[in-house]
Design a protein around this nucleic acid. Sequence first.
DNA 1: CACGTCGATGTAATCGATTCCAAGCAATCG
DNA 2: CGATTGCTTGGAATCGATTACATCGACGTG
Lengths: 345, 345
Amino acid sequence: MASIKDVAAEAGVSAATVSRVLNDHPSVSAEARARVMTAVAALGYRPNAVARSLRTDQTHTFGLVISDVMNPYFTELARSVEEEARALGYSVIIGNADERPDLQDHHVRNLLDRRIDGLLVSPTDGGSPLMLDAARGGTPMVFVDRWIPGVDVPVVRADGRGAVRDLVAHLHGLGHRRLAIIAGPAATTTGSERVEAFRAALAEYGIPLPDAYTGQGDFQAESGRRVTEGFLDLAEPPEVVFAADNLMALGALDAIRARGMRVPDDIALAAFDDIPWFVHTDPPITAIAQPTGELGRAAVRALVDRIEGRPPQSVTLPARLVVRRSCGENPASSEPSPVTNRSHS
Amino acid sequence: MASIKDVAAEAGVSAATVSRVLNDHPSVSAEARARVMTAVAALGYRPNAVARSLRTDQTHTFGLVISDVMNPYFTELARSVEEEARALGYSVIIGNADERPDLQDHHVRNLLDRRIDGLLVSPTDGGSPLMLDAARGGTPMVFVDRWIPGVDVPVVRADGRGAVRDLVAHLHGLGHRRLAIIAGPAATTTGSERVEAFRAALAEYGIPLPDAYTGQGDFQAESGRRVTEGFLDLAEPPEVVFAADNLMALGALDAIRARGMRVPDDIALAAFDDIPWFVHTDPPITAIAQPTGELGRAAVRALVDRIEGRPPQSVTLPARLVVRRSCGENPASSEPSPVTNRSHS
DNA sequence: CACGTCGATGTAATCGATTCCAAGCAATCG
DNA sequence: CGATTGCTTGGAATCGATTACATCGACGTG
């Protein structure tokens, strides 16, 4: 592979001049520029990004560590992140933590070793020493979707409280009174926040959320199945199961089907995180939709601001309820008035 | 960030010795080793992968360029690729081409600039000059799923012919005689091969595949919708629509629903590429399942063989039919005898 | 005409590792 | 006892870029 010296030799100039042409530095004569360009084309030369990074201490790359690539929510997030990054001249390296703290650490370490310019993280847990050190140690960092409390890092996320309140109103309106939730891991903010929002919304109707109706999941389908089976085994099973993410909702659906029960006739089902497939399930599933693309883009902008020395901003965007048929027939409308509360921090 | 010199100073040895300890070179005294280890721990030193790569001309990284991250088939592929790569000591950088040749080129160029050790590609088209040059120019490369004919690069893929024959037998058994297919882009091997396999299987029953029953899609949901609408507008619409990938099947389902028709009563639907969600659609969709995880792992092994100087091998694994309810009720069994033909090249 | 200015270019240092080579030293051998 | 061997170790070159600094000519000005 041709190096800058080969180009210099071919063009009859020094490597410094070639470098100047490539980085269009002003003081290069038109003639030298032309000869360098010709040599570059003739040799098919491409600058070695590794060498360049070593010298400039910039990789024009950042890492995105997500909790689960197989979850459509995160793949959509990853896609929008890559798009925005590309538009701003950055590349993205994705690390999939599979909801495992050890894997998350593996990727963070790997990315740090590669001297990425910044890190976008949707943490799987409360923060390993490694991640906390990185955050404190000055690595530009932004949390997306989930975050770690007590760390001074900008957060880009959706606020689901309004949508959860709308969901509970919807369920209450359909006559449901025994509502259960499949929570995410308590170590994640989204794991606990969603339960709290649900509990608060229920409280407005004077409905309690007993322990028996809060199952502990891990954001994976299998846990949704397991928790739901527990619910169905209760002397008084819930009338509604609300899953804190889409995969657990799928698991719940499986468990319900396995008992020969039907949604929504025998039991209602709703989920946090809307995905295209929910339109096609049997029945279509009522869900809370996050503005995923917006979140990804905002997160990238915040990170790039931080990297390039501008003050980064935390962003909170509202989620909204998308009513379908999985909680019972609502003859009125299939898409309710969107939530309009808007917040920021 | 501490460098190797800082460690050397802290340990009271030279940088060369530190390097030897880190790469556990045999000739280092136990005492020096101990002091270096202590210094490394004290400073929290991590070797700079950029500098190391520049010197050794190896990045222990390879690129994976896939055609569409939002397609669950590819995200599963990506996941298994990353897993196997990690097990073998490599990292993976994913590039999403979104079925766009220009984006594919962008990623290939970017990965080449980073001096990745090898490239795993599922090409979106027949091969740009850039990719052909890379292949011929000695970049270790392996094609997964799709490939480019006439290029001397190992291919790891599934052979769907047996499964397509099983599918046609299944459909014929249910009494269907007018069968249509939504093809993928002709520039991709999977786009054309699947049509050919379908046509060949139909021929065994003396059933033709007229032009009117072969729609041109692009592996995206929207094209599935559009083509299906065309089918439904025909004077004599098909009894079965077979989509060459899962997203187009979803589009087809949408189009069918939009007309108020029902699957499988009014029209049957089948898809290439099985995904977890097909169990939950209404109705569950009959599909041809690829051994996705196996493909990903085999592809990585082939690439790493190539990188490390061993002769890489092309691999072809059989796909199999998974019967569900979208083509009509089959009272016999829900999972037919698996296909057993096995091939290689 | 001497001197300062400015634009274009080359030389060399540098980034953080790895690795060849030579040297120091102790142990072993003839 | 001198020479050889073998183990450790450090010095210095190197990978491919970028960039501070020096140089060199041409030009304008007092």
